[in-house]
Design a protein around this nucleic acid. Sequence first.
DNA 1: ACCTAATGTAAAATATATCATACATAATGA
DNA 2: TCATTATGTATGATATATTTTACATTAGGT
Lengths: 66, 66
Amino acid sequence: MAKNLKLKAARARLDLSQQDLADMVDVTRQTISAIERGDYNPTINLCRRICRALNVTLNDLFWEDS
Amino acid sequence: MAKNLKLKAARARLDLSQQDLADMVDVTRQTISAIERGDYNPTINLCRRICRALNVTLNDLFWEDS
DNA sequence: ACCTAATGTAAAATATATCATACATAATGA
DNA sequence: TCATTATGTATGATATATTTTACATTAGGT
């Protein structure tokens, strides 16, 4: 899986560190890092939690570029 | 996790059985069943494959009702 | 330059998603 | 009605997602 730059940008837009976001969605900072780098294939529930925390939808962060 | 009726409906719209869809996305029929029933928390990659097979987006099947 | 914060990365342990197999129940069409 | 198809469900095995811990590197601010 490729780097998820949309996730990184959405996080940056809210000026959150990976640790901040990790705390918000109840995972480790390393997990957020691994998702952004494309190293992890996260579950849908985690993806949803991330989207809610960042005020975006699944399509914004995890669907194909339009 | 609750039943995913949107997934079931999208599948029905194309007149596909769970087995048909399972074959298309390379999982077992039981996995599709479990996802529809809300018993499984699928990975984002599988969710994407399902959406592509059914010609819908992630938001259509896995995001909150709008 | 320097120090701290932020991020990357690895590896073993742990948790959880999925498979394989089997059986049960419901639905459908002739 | 009956036979077949479709779906539900369970359980142990297997595969994979995540955590934990530690260290390395990069980034940013003073």
